[in-house]
């Protein structure tokens, strides 16, 4: 490749970077500005103030809300891994009557966004007394439409496993559950990784559902909490809001940068490749 071409390509890449990097930079630096000068156009605050970061915790039970989001996302992720890998394995490798019909039944979940069913689900959880609890935020993603996508990814992966491995295990006297646990699952690590990432991010980002189901501040999840930083008379406190947003984004970004290879390649090399 010619030098000119290289310079052109690097230039293009740098320009394209701006909308990806600028927001994060602006979010973090603006979160240290006082609210009065929040709209001043400075690449770094003229005076750094930690006050907004402190206010995040005094205005809302932010640590509690952080914990809510984190524990829900972890339970949903673990639950989905269990549900999806079992179902994916069964649909891919075990033959049983009615299999195809049942697979179709499960697969329709892919077609139905959870937004479609939010009203009846709300009523269902309402009659179970589960509105304003975290149950809907755990059960629906773990067993509903989002986990169907996970099941599909797992099935696509298990189908590609060579049959000989299982056969050998059978001759050694292993039963199905043991084959699944000791042979299939360890091999499925990349697919499990991709499913885990997808599921975690999905739960972490969930917004409509918490807005609908949760009404007590101590039960809010992060996305919901982020929109609530206003002063006593509903003036928007941008700097506090941006501090809270930074706190939600930075830890995940750090984990991502450390494990970026696993992240990206895990996603790239799954059944989603088409």
């Amino acid at each position: 490749m010619s030098l000119k071409m290289r310079i052109f390509l690097y230039g293009l890449l740098l320009v394209l970077c701006v909308p990806f990097v600028f927001p994060t930079w602006w979010m973090i630096t603006s979160s240290f500005k006082p609210n009065a000068s929040i709209f001043a156009f400075d690449f770094a605050p003229s005076t750094w103030s930690l006050e907004p970061w402190r206010q995040v915790f005094t205005m809302q039970p932010f640590a509690q809300q952080y914990w809510n989001s984190a524990y829900i996302a972890v339970i949903v992720t673990l639950g989905t891994l269990v549900v999806a890998s079992m179902a994916g394995y069964a649909f891919a490798r075990i033959r049983f009557p009615g299999q195809n019909v049942l697979f179709l039944v499960v697969l329709t979940g892919l077609l139905i966004p959870s937004e479609v069913t939010i009203v009846p689900l709300f009523r269902m959880f309402n009659s179970l007394g589960m509105v304003d609890t975290h149950w809907p935020l755990i059960l629906v993603p773990m067993l509903g439409p989002p986990s169907v996508l996970a099941t599909f990814i797992m099935r696509q992966f298990f189908i590609t496993l060579p049959g000989e491995l299982e056969e050998a295990a059978r001759i050694d006297g292993l039963g199905r559950p043991a084959i699944f646990r000791r042979i299939a699952l360890p091999l499925a690590r990349p697919a499990l990784g991709a499913v885990a990432i997808f599921t975690f991010l999905h739960s972490w980002n969930l917004y409509l559902e918490p807005v609908v189901y949760i009404s007590s501040q101590t039960k809010y999840t992060l996305p919901q909490a982020l929109t609530q930083f206003t002063d006593a008379y509903q003036g928007q406190l941008w700097n506090v809001q941006l501090s809270a947003a930074s706190m939600t984004a930075i830890p995940v970004l750090i984990v991502f940068v450390i494990a970026q290879r696993q992240f990206i390649e895990g996603l790239a090399h799954t059944g989603l490749k088409g």
Partner: peptide, 13 residues
């Protein structure tokens, strides 16, 4: 193995 996924699909879809 498919029971949880199936129950989920029926109950939540």
């Amino acid at each position: 193995f498919i029971t949880p996924a199936l129950v989920g699909a029926v109950a939540f879809v």
